[in-house]
Design a binder for these strands. Structure first.
Lengths: 106, 106
DNA sequence: AATATGCGCAATTGATTTATTGCATATATT
DNA sequence: AATATATGCAATAAATCAATTGCGCATATT
């Protein structure tokens, strides 16, 4: 079973759950009422998010509050940074082109 | 068929292809030799990346060079920004805690 | 103590994905 | 002109995923 952060983000419901949890911790049942799916479906999504460590839990009596694990979100950002170097470089190249054009105007 | 950027990133081979194309444009056959999969499998991945506009093509004779579409990568970054606000806020809160502690020391 | 609620776990089913195989088409090479 | 190469497309099979259903267990509520 594939269980990495990117696989977790592939599902729109899971992305929505992450956004929900971003503002405050919630129980699975509370999350379920926000969507059209069943509590069990949400539970499955949460299970995956937990396995990927995108979400952490805190038990309170019989309720379990889930909240966002920001560390992992940062990992995605790290992966993106590999590309940021490139797009900055390309902007640099574009800048150079513009500079050359300006010089030629003179 | 789900065909969004996040779904495209879910597959590790596709992520690797994107990284490959980040440095320079490549043909499907050239990409295929870098991995263990067949050319057709790579072709399928590229097809999906094209549909998501993560990749653009440029035909040169019978060869097709694929290269990264940086715009779309930025879209992922935009999605992440929703969370960045939160984690910055939480750092602010942490800063406040530290400040309070320092004040109490005095 | 009996009942209700919140939750996880397992089995099942249907949908979606991934990789393979085989083929067709267009462009090079000989 | 014949052959080789680069590629896309379609059909199929295998793997994976998502949602439902039904269950059991622990914690609240009455």
């Amino acid at each position: 079973m594939r269980r990495d952060v990117f696989q977790a983000l592939a599902d729109p419901t899971r992305r929505a759950i992450l956004l929900l949890l971003a503002s405050h911790a919630m129980t699975p049942s509370a999350i379920a009422v926000e969507f059209q799916t069943s509590r069990q479906a949400v539970s499955k999504h949460i299970q995956m998010l937990t396995e990927c460590e995108l979400v952490k839990q805190q038990q309170q009596g019989r309720e379990i509050y889930y909240s966002l694990e920001i560390k992992k979100i940062k990992e995605i950002d790290k992966w993106l940074e590999q590309f940021k170097k490139i797009w900055e470089d390309r902007f640099d190249q574009l800048d150079n082109v513009l500079l050359t054009l300006k010089k030629n105007e003179k």
